[in-house]
Design a protein around this nucleic acid. Structure first.
Lengths: 234, 234
DNA sequence: TCTAAAAATTAACTTATGTTAGAGAACGCT
DNA sequence: AGCGTTCTCTAACATAAGTTAATTTTTAGA
């Protein structure tokens, strides 16, 4: 079983962790826990503090509205930190697996103690949160100021970049297990409209999203319609 | 002139800082700088690293699109941290003052050094970023899954709560120097539609936004149409 | 106090996206 | 291999929000 420390040391994890970020102590001896596809790892409003670091697999972080709709906040990937809050209190979002998912789980209390005693850890967490901030800000741009076509194009390019940072994408191709319904919940639109939009993107020879597989066809045109600049993912 | 340390010690600053968060060293001896209303404090794509902490006044943090549109990412208020990035690189957003604005400015390099040597600072920054994360996630919900009416209602309630945390709102009333155009850029809609929406909110006796002044009229109904729960602002 | 500029407001019209409903395709289970 | 479920895809129609354009009100500066 690989420990958290070993994991951290063997991955650049989303650009946030560097090899020596966790100091010399084998961090809390935490080992990864495995979840089956489509299981709920934690629920919005639950009171069991603790953060997660994704080791492998795809997950969805989402918030539900009263009327049953939901907005997917993020798709945490290998190395991403989930669930850190500034205060004790109920969880703000739910986390569910899509594929089989391996996550390290750490209690808030232990994490905060570790941050207080080890400056490098605080820096690491802060950097990881700053990057998540940038991603959320970009999603906000997407939802607020881009139409369905560029919004979809933008997110598919973001996924490609994020996956390629952790070695899961190359040559404009990657596996993406999201359903169209889930993708629509990420992009803040209806399934029907997303389907229309994907069709247009395909017809225009920009990207194809078929059977869990994404292929960038004309990157230059795609980047242009998306208004995409990967700087925010560094 | 009040130093940063004195400021930190005298405010609960957005819920993120506690009185002893910065240790005993008078933090870098930084003093606040004052900007006139409607000045640009820093520009997207600029390469002058450094973070800002708002001391007083209203500001806008925004990102521009190629076509000249912009999305306002956040309205940093007293105590909020702006501009922290996980890596060196160009700024992702611009910061502009609305009112006269006082901000503490700290270079990234010095801040990182301080985080590394002082665990409490790392925790403080991480908590502040976690809170900003929660705010951005909620704005994403707004843009993606709420209609104009509840979106507007939600943001006006958020402002009230954030202002009241730093002592700038009470009894459902607060001063808000945002123009309708700026508010529209926050909410990801057009000025015209925002104006329509504000009229409806007024007609329905929920909130009034007139002449830089917001007044909550029927909180219960307003909270309900907004689907508002202040937990994320703690 | 006057004047020019900026902000708020409204109406008429257009369009992107949502809604409803259904058929075909793929998938997972026994 | 069969069968039910979950996806994908499409069309016809409805509506919330965008666009354009003009008027009134407020604000800031000379």
């Amino acid at each position: 079983m690989q420990t958290l420390l070993q994991f951290i040391h063997s991955h650049p994890v989303g650009g946030a962790f560097s090899k020596d970020a966790w100091g010399n102590n084998d961090f809390l001896g935490v080992t990864a826990r495995i979840y089956k596809p489509h299981s709920v790892i934690c629920r919005q409003d639950d009171n069991n503090g603790g953060i997660f670091i994704v080791k492998s697999g795809w997950a969805l972080l989402y918030r539900g509205l009263l009327d049953g709709e939901r907005q997917i906040i993020d798709t945490p990937l290998r190395g991403d930190i989930v669930g850190f809050r500034s205060v004790d209190g109920p969880r703000l979002a739910s986390l569910a697996s899509i594929t089989e998912l391996a996550v390290y789980e750490i209690s808030s209390k232990k994490l905060v103690e570790a941050i207080l005693s080890e400056g490098r850890l605080g820096k690491t967490i802060a950097c990881s949160l700053a990057r998540l901030n940038a991603i959320l800000a970009e999603h906000l741009m997407n939802a607020g100021r881009r139409n369905a076509m560029s919004r979809t194009a933008h997110f598919l390019l973001e996924l490609e970049e994020r996956l390629s940072i952790v070695g899961l994408s190359a040559h404009g191709r990657y596996e993406c297990p999201l359903t169209q319904h889930e993708l629509a919940d990420i992009l803040g639109m209806t399934t029907v409209h997303l389907n229309r939009t994907l069709r247009e993107l395909r017809k225009a020879d920009l990207v194809a999203f078929k059977a869990g597989h994404v292929e960038v066809i004309n990157r230059k045109k795609l980047v242009k319609t998306a208004g995409f600049d990967s700087e925010y993912l560094r």
